[in-house]
Design a protein around this nucleic acid. Structure first.
Lengths: 337, 337
DNA sequence: CCGCCAAATGTAACTAGTTACACAGCTTGT
DNA sequence: ACAAGCTGTGTAACTAGTTACATTTGGCGG
C-alpha cells in the first residue's frame, strides 16, 4: 500500500529496471526503434505501458536545446484582426511542428516587456511582437537571449528587428485619397487611442497631405460602442463633415450603426470609410468601403519567417505587404451642398 | 578569435568559473539573492552580464517538474466567441503565472488528439478542450499523463472530465420558447455543421419540445456569408416561416443582412433570434435578440479551475453557467397572417 | 576452428540547473 | 575563554533524458 500511495511519475530508469535493460535501450526504443531487437522492444514497450511512462518534455528539451515554442505578444485577443492573424500564425507554425504561446499586453509596453520575460522563462525560441514601439527592456531581452524576434503590423526596413507588415501611413493615405477623389473637403477622422499605438499614429501621419480638405479629429476606444458615440459627436458639430474616415473598421461599424439610428443616409448624406477590412465589413449595410490589411498573409509570412530563423538560422529581411482600397457602398461623391 | 567564433550560450558553471565562486552561489544569486553577500553578488552579477548568461528554462523545468504552460484546444481562433474566451483564459492564467499555448483543431477530433500530443510534448501541465466529443486517443493521453484537463462550452456533470460551460440544449430551448411566447408557429432553424459538433447537436436537441410549432432546418457554414445564403433559401420557400432561429449569432447576422437586402422587415415580417450574444449583436440594426453565452466568465472560471488543479491538486467539479435571453429588437409578436 | 564483422546492448558521461549537507569563519552568551 | 549559533560558501548528488563509446554475442567466411 505504501508503495502505491503516491506513485510519482515513472522515469527512464524505472522503465529500464522493470524491463531488465539499460536506460540507453529504453531511449532507443523511444527514438530509434529500428535499432532495437523485437523481443527487447516488446519488453520495454510493456514496461512503459505498465508504468504509464511518459517522457519528460523538459529533459528532452535540455538535451536538444529545443522547446519548439514560439511566443506572440499582441495587444488583445478580443479583436477580430488579431485573432485572425494569430489563427494564421498558429496554423503555419504547426506545419513547422512549433507551438504558439499567446500573451496579451493591452497595448502597454511595460506589460509587454514583462510578458516577454515570462515567455523567455518558459523557453520560447522566438518572439513575435506587434508594432515598433517597445520598452528598452524588451530589446535587452532579445539581445541577451539572441532570440529570433520579428515585429509585425508595421513595415519599417530601418527598424532594429525585421518587420513584416504594411505601410500604415500609406493605408491612411489611400483612405484619405479615396475621399479626396470623391471631392470631399470636410472630413472627420475617428481614431483609436494614440498612447503607445504606433500603427494609429502612422495612419494619422498618412493624413498630412490633405490638399484643400479640412480635417477634424475624434479619439475613441476601439469598440463599436465608441464608434457610435464618435458619430454622435460628429453629427452634432456645427459644420457637419461630408465624410468620416475611421482608422479602424470597428469604429466605422459603430459610425454606420449610428448613422442608421439617426436616419443619416450613407453615402448620400455622408460617406464613411474604414481601415482593416474585417470579415463583417463586406456585409454591413451599406457595405463598408475600407482599406484591406492582409492580416492572414501577414500571419503566414511571419510564421514562416520566424520558423526559418529558428530552424535554419536564416534571419529574415522585412516584408512589405500591400494594402488595397476596397471600394464598396459606404462612400460616394460629395453632393453639392 | 577561435574562442569567440561560435560562443555558445553560457551556463551556470561558466558564470561560476568567471566569478570565482561555486555553481551553488550563482544559483543562489538567481533564486535567493538575500542569502548571498553583497560583494559576491556583485561579482556574480558582473559575470552574468559579461557572459550574457540566461538561465535555461528546460533545466529549471527539469528540476521543478514545472513548465508553467497550459494548453488550450479550440476549433478555431477566427471566431469572436473563441477569441474572447481565450482572451479571458489568458488573462486569468497570467495571474497564476501560467502561460497559454493555443492549438486549433478545425473541429476535427483527430487533429485535436494529435495537437494534444504536441502539447504534452512541449510539457503542458494542463489541458483545456472544447466540448465533450473527442477521440479515445485524447482520453488515453490525459489518463496516461495524469493531466489535469477540463472540457468547456458544454456542461455535463457525468462527463469523464470536469465540464465548465452552459446548457446548450437549454440555450436552444430558451430561444425557441421566446419565439413560441411570441406566438410563432412556423420557425426556420439555421445551424452550423453537425459533424463532431456536440454544442450544435445539443442546441438542436433543445428544440424538440415544439408545442404546436412546425420547425424546418437549414445547415450552413459558420459565416456571415452562409447566414445570408440560408436566409435566401428560407425566403424563397413556399411557406415562409414567421421566425428564424439561428444557433449562432454569426448566422443571425448574415440573416439580418439578407433581410435588409431583400427589404424584409425585421421583426415585422419575420423575427430573428440568435445564440451567443456577440459584441456586435447589440449594435446590429435591428439589434439582435439572442441568448447570451457567458464566454468571458467561462474563460475565467476555466482558467481558475485548471490553475487550482495544477497548483494545488484541487480537481474541480463542473460548473454550470447560466444562459440568459437578451430580448432586443429583432423579435416580435407574430402578426396575424 | 578461428577470426572478423555487425547487430544489440550496456556503461557512463554528458545536457544545465537546484539543493541537501558540510564546513569555515565570525559573533555572541555564559 | 570556549561553546554555541549564525552567515556565507562549496561539494556533490540529485532532476530525466540523450548519446559516444565500449562490450557482448552470434553468424559467416576462410
Amino acid at each position: 500500500m505504501a508503495k502505491t500511495r503516491f506513485r510519482k511519475r515513472a522515469n527512464l530508469r524505472d522503465v529500464a529496471k522493470l524491463a531488465n535493460v539499460s536506460v540507453a535501450t529504453v531511449s532507443r526504443v523511444l527514438n530509434t526503434p529500428d535499432s532495437v531487437a523485437e523481443v527487447t522492444k516488446a519488453a520495454v514497450t510493456a514496461a512503459i505501458a505498465e508504468l504509464r511512462f511518459v517522457p519528460s518534455a523538459a529533459a528532452r528539451a535540455i538535451n536538444s536545446g529545443r522547446s519548439r515554442v514560439v511566443g506572440a505578444l499582441v495587444p488583445t485577443l478580443d479583436h477580430a484582426i488579431f485573432a485572425r492573424y494569430l489563427a494564421a500564425i498558429e496554423q503555419t507554425l504547426s506545419g513547422y511542428r512549433l507551438s504558439l504561446v499567446v500573451a496579451t499586453t493591452k497595448g502597454d509596453a511595460a506589460i509587454e516587456a514583462e510578458k516577454a520575460q515570462t515567455l523567455v522563462d518558459i523557453g520560447a525560441e522566438g518572439l513575435i511582437v506587434s508594432g515598433v514601439t517597445h520598452e528598452p527592456g524588451l530589446y535587452d531581452l532579445i539581445e541577451r537571449c539572441q532570440l529570433p524576434a520579428v515585429a509585425t503590423s508595421y513595415y519599417d526596413p530601418d527598424f532594429l528587428l525585421p518587420t513584416i507588415g504594411y505601410d500604415n501611413a500609406g493605408a491612411g493615405r489611400i483612405a484619405l485619397q479615396h475621399l479626396l477623389d470623391l471631392e470631399h473637403s470636410r472630413i472627420a477622422v475617428v481614431h483609436g487611442s494614440l498612447i503607445g499605438n504606433d500603427r494609429t499614429l502612422a495612419r494619422l501621419k498618412g493624413l498630412e497631405n490633405t490638399g484643400d480638405a479640412e480635417l477634424s479629429f475624434v479619439e475613441a476606444d476601439l469598440s463599436i460602442e465608441d464608434g457610435c458615440k464618435s458619430a454622435q459627436t460628429i453629427l452634432s458639430a456645427a459644420h457637419r463633415p461630408t465624410a468620416i474616415l475611421c482608422l479602424s473598421d470597428v469604429l466605422a461599424t459603430g459610425v454606420l450603426y449610428e448613422m442608421k439610428r439617426q436616419s443619416v443616409e450613407v453615402p448620400k448624406d455622408v460617406s464613411v470609410i474604414g481601415i482593416d477590412d474585417l470579415p463583417g465589413s463586406a456585409h454591413a449595410s451599406p457595405s463598408l468601403t475600407t482599406v484591406h490589411l492582409p492580416v492572414v498573409r501577414m500571419g503566414h509570412a511571419t510564421a514562416v519567417a520566424i520558423s526559418e530563423w529558428i530552424e535554419n538560422g536564416l534571419k529574415p529581411s522585412g516584408m512589405l505587404l500591400a494594402t488595397d482600397l476596397i471600394a464598396r457602398e459606404s462612400t460616394g461623391v460629395r453632393r453639392p451642398a
